[in-house]
Amino acid sequence: MSGADSSYVGIVLVSHSGPVAESVARLAVGLAGGGAKAPVAAAGGTPDGGLGTSAELITEAARKVDGGAGVAVLVDLGSAVLTVKALLAEGDELPEGTRLVDAPFVEGAVAAVVTASTGAGLDAVAAAAGEAYSYRKE
């Protein structure tokens, strides 16, 4: 099922909105510059383009970026969080080595893509994304 280079952790961005997930993915890849090597996939909104969370789009995105090095899933809120947790609890829906990362969505996505693109492992990617919580804005 893997469509990605196995040496990098894959990143999945789950939002209630398709455009938000797509834009944050583009932002993170753009800010990582030419060094964005880790595969990134957006899973936003419902398959018909509405607001919400789609287990189907999340599973599809995770399989697409999974190369065997693990998949870091970042989520925005509410049903995005609950759906990923429920899918992980299913045990067989998401690729092995898929992890829900506790991180702010936008800042965490940038940190995750940059860190994953250095070839860092899933633990390091999750830690870098989570560290974004400690960056205060005032």
């Binding site: 509405g50 969370t53 287990a55 509410g78 609950l82 759906t83 429920a86 899918l87």
Partner: peptide, 14 residues
């Protein structure tokens, strides 16, 4: 879990 699209999906599904 796979069809609802809101928080009630994973909650009732679970």
């Amino acid at each position: 879990i796979s069809t609802v699209g809101g928080a009630s999906g994973p909650l009732y599904g679970t």
